[in-house]
Amino acid sequence: MSSPAGASPAAAHPAAAAAAPSPAATIRLTVNGVVHTVQAAPGTPLLYVLRDDLALRGPRFGCGLGQCGACTVHLDGAAVRSCTIPVAAAAGRRITTLEGLGPAGRLHPVQQAFVDEQAMQCGYCVNGWIMTAAALLARTPNPSDAEVRSALAGLICRCGAHMRMLRAVRRAAQSRG
């Protein structure tokens, strides 16, 4: 029996199509308002460049499959999954991570609401929830409870901090009023 990758069949990975070796290129990225130049194969998922080349900690690897949201960043203000976006597709666009979500030196209202509601257990997932909620509130300042839940339906929180995170999003919506 031959298995190229044990229990992780290549077909299950959306990024696998771009996995064919390609030479590194010079790519300019604008992250949290700062321009960076990185050397990376164009097909490298943005997540690895943000974490490993730019040493950012907000976006995290959870699945690499677009299923959990742990890697969420904003691309021109929209919440996207950096584990499935090739770095080349982010060049020339505005990338915002959890570290750069708030105004300089301050927390974004959604981040503040997560602190106020003590809305996490381990917090590994929280990047996805905060970034997705911030994008939602930018679009829909006063969402209903059902709208919040469905906007956050693509996220995983294994610890089960859902109730507090939902409360935090409501609190942030009210504080922005």
């Binding site: 708030g102 997560f114 996490m120």
Partner: peptide, 30 residues
């Protein structure tokens, strides 16, 4: 721990880097 976690400034195990570090992955039997 919560303020640093909400800000993206917390150090999780996945954030630990040591000088000269390489990256490994494993392949399990089917």
């Amino acid at each position: 721990d919560i303020p640093a976690k909400a800000a993206g400034a917390f150090t999780y195990i996945v954030d630990v880097r040591v000088p000269g570090m390489l990256h490994g992955r494993v392949i399990r039997p089917p």
